[in-house]
């Protein structure tokens, strides 16, 4: 199991107050901003930027960069690994 991805799911649930959702409900390739996925909105996207800084020490200065990085758990994990390498 990829611990970064599992951590991300927990962090997203915590940061976005998704109280009715468990990590098991989020698959790695779910589209986070899609109705079939978590159905997140533009404010959630900004909150994910706060999450990256809070838990991973990564600063995102251009929200458009987030749009690509936050497509799914897979893309978020990939983005974090790239920024940290």
């Amino acid at each position: 199991m990829d611990t970064l991805k599992e951590d991300l799911k927990k962090q997203i649930i915590e940061q976005l107050n998704l109280e009715d959702i468990t990590p098991a409900d989020i698959s790695d390739d779910n589209l986070l901003f899609n109705e079939e996925g978590l159905n997140l909105d533009s404010i959630d996207a900004l909150e994910l930027i706060v999450l990256l800084e809070k838990y991973h020490g990564i600063q995102v200065t251009n929200p458009d960069e987030g749009k690509v990085a936050f497509r799914s758990i897979n893309s978020m994990a990939e983005y974090i690994r790239k920024r940290k390498s």
Binding site: E47, V50, E53
Partner: peptide, 10 residues
């Protein structure tokens, strides 16, 4: 040192 929360601000 934390960042202001946009979802609280709204």
């Amino acid at each position: 040192n934390s960042s202001p929360s946009p979802s609280l601000f709204v």
